[in-house]
Structures are given as C-alpha cells and as structure tokens.
C-alpha cells in the first residue's frame, strides 16, 4: 500500500513538473517574452531592464536551468501586479476555490446518484426518459450563460440573491449552482449507466432469484458496485472544477483561483499564471492519489494487489 502511494506521488510530481516545464516554454515561444510580463506600453528601457533582471537575454538552456532552480526553491518570481511572491499569491487563492469546489462536487455527487439510480431502476419508463433528457440538457448549458441568466433572474429581477461578494450563504448559492451544472449533467448519465450495468449483472440476477425487492437490489447490491466508476468520474471532474471556478469568479467576483488567473491575464502577470498552474497541478495530483486510494479501499478485488 505504501509503495503504491509513493509511486503515485512520484509520478504525480513528475507530471506537475512536466506541466510547469510546458508553461515555461510557453512563455518563451514568442520572440519577446518580456512582453508577457510587462504592460503593453512599457518603454524600451524597461524592457531591457526586465530582460537583464530576469536573465531573458541569456541562452535558453541557462534560462531553463535558472527556472528549474527556482522551482526547486519554490520561487516562481515576484508578482508585479500583486506586489508579492507569485507562489504566495497562488497559494492564498486556493482555499476559497477548494471550498467552492468541494461543496459543488459533493452536492453534484449526491444529486447525480439519486437521479441516476432512479433513472436506472425505472429504466425506459417516463421517469428515466425525463431524467435522461434533463441531464443531457443540463450538460448542454454553458456555465457562464447560466450564471448570467441566474443573475438576471434572481438578482436583478427578483432581487433575492447578491450579484457578487463572498460572505453570507447567499453569495455562495449561485456560484455553487453554476459549478454543479457540468458535473451533474455528466455524472447522472454515468451513474445511470453504471447502475444499469450493475443491475444487469449476474449477482443482481442471483439476488433477484433469491427474492429480494427491487429497492434492495438497487440500493444495496447495485449501488455499492456502481459506486466504483462513479468515484472514478468524480475524481476526473475535480480538475474540471477549476474551470468552473474561473468562470464563476469572472461573473460573480468570487475570490479564489479563478479571480487570480483572470486577473493575471488581464494584468499581464505571467509569473502568477505560472505559479497558479503549478499549484492547481499539485492539487489535482493529490486529489487523484486520494481517489485511487479510496478506490482501493472500496473495491476488495483491488486491495490485495
């Protein structure tokens, strides 16, 4: 077990390093990397000063080594915009985003499991068709548009919810709802599929032959097995939550990684962008390891490998 965790972490770190390297080269593709960091109207002198300061006039290899050295020291440069180390800015932006993502993902899983199981156990009947159609529709709604429409309806028209801000449960409702769209839309179908497969398996047939009720077959026999692919998918969607967070902060001015990243783009702060990619990458890797471990705990066939 421990060997497994270590192995996955190492792979994960390699992956994140790969990510960071890619971003590094991304920043060097254009002829004048400094342009990515400096405001558009910066003077020529500023450019030259910047280039010398950050060694952008050095050969690429040297730059790369300097960069790697920085990464190892966890130094991603200083943010001009934020007036503090880029990594610090990125790390401090994580908590609100994590909170938002965790709540949204948890609620999405609950909703999907309920809807997907209902759909699977009444397969092909009207409820199933309604749920399937509903989940397909939800999966087709762009989150940014949904957020705007909600703002239009709830905040502007009805005046019941705030359009922006961070404190109070009110301010979290629309952001969480927006972030739940894609996961619910996709996971309901996954749950339904996994439940249908579990329900048509041999052990459910056997249990049915032993006279158990449909309800028992669904919730005790099938769900426990369907939980495994559901877990996988939920883990996959975690990375996608950051996407949602970006949109959410753009529209609701919700603090967090989304706001940071969008701000970094608008303010031409590539350091912060790099650091953000690094932090998010690590978070995703850690999450995947946790999901894998949970999978091993949940599925006895995997445990003993």
């Amino acid at each position: 077990m421990r060997k497994f965790v270590v192995r996955r972490l190492v792979t994960g770190i390699v992956t994140v390093l790969g990510v960071v390297v890619i971003v590094f080269f991304l920043g060097r593709i254009t002829g004048s990397p400094a342009a990515l960091y400096l405001p558009e109207n910066a003077s020529q002198e500023r450019y030259e000063q910047f280039n010398t300061e950050y060694g952008l006039d050095q050969p690429l290899l040297v730059q790369f080594l300097r960069f790697l050295g920085g990464v190892v020291r966890l130094d991603f440069g200083d943010s001009i915009w934020q007036q503090r180390p880029a990594l610090e800015a990125a790390l401090s932006a994580m908590p609100p985003t994590l909170g938002l993502a965790a709540i949204a993902l948890a609620l999405s899983v609950i909703v999907s499991v309920v809807l997907g199981s209902l759909a699977a156990s009444r397969r092909f009947k009207s409820l199933d068709r309604a749920i399937t159609f509903g989940s397909l529709t939800i999966a087709s709604i762009p989150d940014f548009w949904f957020a705007l429409v909600c703002v239009l309806f709830f905040a502007i028209y009805l005046g019941v919810l705030p359009t922006s801000g961070y404190d109070g449960v009110d301010a979290w409702i629309l952001p969480v709802a927006t972030m739940m769209l894609a996961p619910v839309g996709v996971m309901t179908q996954v749950v339904r599929g996994a439940m249908i497969e579990a329900l048509s398996s041999g052990y459910v047939q056997n249990a049915r032959a032993l006279g158990f009720s449909q309800r028992r077959l669904v919730y005790r026999h099938a769900l426990r097995n369907a939980a495994l692919p559901i877990l996988s998918v939920a883990g996959d969607r975690a990375a996608g939550m950051v996407n949602g967070a970006i949109i959410v902060s753009a529209i609701f001015a919700f603090p967090g990684m989304g706001a940071l990243v969008v701000g970094a783009v608008l303010n031409r702060d590539f350091f912060v962008l790099q650091a953000s990619v690094f932090v998010v990458g690590i978070a995703v890797v850690l999450l995947n390891v946790i999901v894998d471990l949970t999978y091993a705990v949940a599925d006895p066939r995997v445990r003993l490998d």
Partner: peptide
C-alpha cells in the same frame, strides 16, 4: 412481482452457471 418474490428462494431456488458472476464482489 411481489408474490413471485415470496416464492423465489423459499419455494423455488436457482443456481446459476457462472458462480463468479453470481456473487457480489464487494461483500
């Protein structure tokens, strides 16, 4: 179906060919 359930297992029982398939892997 409800009446059939009473008969299953207690009146008439079935043993399937594939025993691995017939048993729930997680319990």
């Amino acid at each position: 179906e409800a009446e059939l359930r009473d008969v299953r297992g207690a009146g008439v029982s079935l043993v399937f060919q594939d025993s691995l398939d017939a048993l729930n892997p997680v319990y």
